[in-house]
Design a protein around this nucleic acid. Structure first.
Lengths: 140, 140
DNA sequence: GTAAACTCTACTAAATCGATAGGATAAACC
DNA sequence: GGTTTATCCTATCGATTTAGTAGAGTTTAC
């Protein structure tokens, strides 16, 4: 399951990527346009600012803006920042690896190899899709 | 994230599929072999019996056994029984569809089409992998 | 200096997860 | 027919996560 955090984060990023200029957009503007609780969105945008996806400006005329071109923002990176590991089990995670307590031997675990295949498939999408690809959805 | 329930369930099914004959195997045997809490495994096996994957026999010499050949048990079905929807968001789920409250229009949602692609990829694996494919893991 | 906006910490209600407890029921075997 | 063995079933529980909310602090524009 994708958390609302990630879903909202992606929607907010897409909203920003759709802007014609790079002027800061206020949280309230995004939250109203995308039907997201403003306070919750606040924390999500803050996370993405700290992770280097967004810049912010305080005070009047302030808000958030993309720091990079939407063609350079890889969804795999956004996903890992907001959601965490892409793998469904920690023992097949590339970036968040953890050994399973119940498996004496990963090579012999039947679930392990299956989850590697699922991970690789998901990864191939998220590593090759960029924020820009989400902007124009209609022609999908 | 894959729940332990599903992980344990898959391991237990694999264990049963590896048996030479179809004689019932006790919960305790499986739980010890696979390092799974016996009581927890009990409820998982019960779920799978009710879903038609397993048969059971009470009393001495009792236990659980596969009702079908491991070549006929599709992992997608097991997954849906134990874990629930394969899709990461309910609005792209084939078997557990639900509309998002925040989206006025699914067609315009940037996350929607992405999640359809992820779902289709995962689905292609789970619909084409059978329990039997998990038995021999080494030669993967 | 005042209003507008992000920043930060802390808290919370509800749901889910991963079990555990304990008795009920059914089958086998002597 | 009673004892043992094993599944069946309901109920409960502690920990964690999720999806927020509250409210004060800080920075900037005007």
């Amino acid at each position: 399951m994708l958390s609302r955090k990630t879903k909202y984060g992606l929607k907010a990023l897409t909203y920003l990527a759709r802007q014609e200029d790079t002027r800061p957009v206020q949280i309230s503007t995004i939250s109203e346009a995308e039907n997201i609780s403003q306070k919750f969105l606040e924390s999500i945008l803050l996370t993405m600012r700290k992770s280097g996806f967004l810049g912010s400006k305080k005070g009047k005329g302030g808000g958030y803006y993309l720091l990079k071109d939407a063609r350079e923002i890889k969804l795999a990176e956004v996903y890992r920042t907001l959601e965490g590991p892409i793998a469904m089990v920690p023992c097949v995670s590339l970036n968040f690896y953890e050994k399973c307590e119940d498996c004496p031997n990963e090579e012999e675990c039947s679930v392990h190899s299956l989850m590697i295949r699922v991970r690789d498939n998901t990864l191939s999408i998220l590593e090759n899709t960029y924020l820009h690809d989400l902007i124009s959805v209609k022609q999908d």
